[in-house]
Write a protein that binds this DNA or RNA. Structure first.
Lengths: 185, 185
DNA sequence: AGCCATGGTGACAGTAGCTGACAATATGCT
DNA sequence: AGCATATTGTCAGCTACTGTCACCATGGCT
């Protein structure tokens, strides 16, 4: 029954999260996930390219939101300032997804295969940020480098932000920027 | 015939490189590689955890060499200077491996699965550099951040260095450091 | 109402990556 | 020679993932 398509996808995501939590990534088969979602294994692989992707479905939207924020940042901003501007604008989105990303992180921390996938997602994000910087007129060579530095800064800031709920992301970013200045001096 | 163990491993590496070049990563099976190396498929997986690892065999040695160089850098050096010191010391090793890494890079550029593996190798390198910095007394939080920034700097520098054979890696690193200062200002 | 194009799905078969268990054989030491 | 150890071969098996085709629900068109 091809109900809506999107419904089955949501059920598959939910089933994936639950089973990975209960039995771990390696011990849960794609067939199990499909069965719990009420579809066939074949349908699972129609919605997600592989078993890992089911855990990273919202990532594309986040990436595109960040890229748009970089492009639409005030034109007189330096590359790094444009990135930081975009990161600050993402704080509400990150805050909203917090309850969902927290259990997911625990699963990821427990399985190397998922950590590997996180790295490619991060690389994709860096590439998108580099693209966005290029649309702002930043040169080809330096845009990727700046995007990498920016992403490292964001990771550093979000780490501290997640660990200490009293912090705001913006404040955490300021600290990270200060640490970066210290290194490069 | 359990000849030497290391011999079979070398043959497997060689066969892997050749077949990936000829037919591409996806089109070559582990059984084919094993057959060309004169062993069984089972033996292939005893030497390498998966099909990708056969392409990244020397990486552990490179990582450890870099980490040692960071630890043994003059104690009064700043974290970033210690990293740059280690990177400069690796130039001969990189130069020596150049004819081997060049065809490998072409294969990697053509196959996403291998690019994903490169990212985990890079992450491992960053972790090792962070560890080495901690052994120099750098604080837990900042060491990983510094290692990330350092790795981004090295990538940027090696890119330019590989593209222009008249450059030395040390000179390329100086330019990268200047770019970094520009971003973080 | 009937019809058709579209798209999601089930069913089935098949390939290949990867693993566990056990036997067989070569190597080094005594 | 004899023994311990390391490496490999053999076999059986699971599961991730893919190609193909038929099926059926939905929405628009006449």
């Amino acid at each position: 029954m091809p109900r809506s398509g999107a419904e089955a996808r949501r059920r598959l995501q939910q089933a994936t999260l639950e089973l990975f939590q209960q039995k771990g990534f390696d011990a849960t088969t794609a067939a199990e996930i499909a069965e719990r979602a009420g579809v066939t294994e074949r349908t699972f692989f129609r919605h997600f390219a592989d078993k890992r992707e089911a855990l990273f479905d919202g990532e594309a939207a986040f990436r595109e939101a960040l890229a748009r924020a970089v492009v639409s940042a005030p034109p007189d901003m330096s590359p790094m300032d444009a990135l930081l501007h975009a990161f600050r604008s993402a704080e509400p989105l990150l805050e909203k997804n917090r309850p969902f990303t927290e259990p997911r992180q625990k699963i990821i921390d427990a399985t190397p295969a998922l950590q590997e996938r996180v790295l490619t997602k991060t690389a994709g994000l860096i590439a998108a940020l580099g693209d966005a910087l290029r649309q702002r007129g930043v040169e080809e060579d330096t845009s990727t480098f700046a995007a990498q530095i920016g992403m490292a800064t964001l990771s550093y800031a979000t780490h501290a932000w997640l660990a200490d709920p009293t912090l705001t992301l913006a404040a955490s970013l300021v600290k990270a920027q200060a640490a970066l200045r210290r290194f490069s001096s």
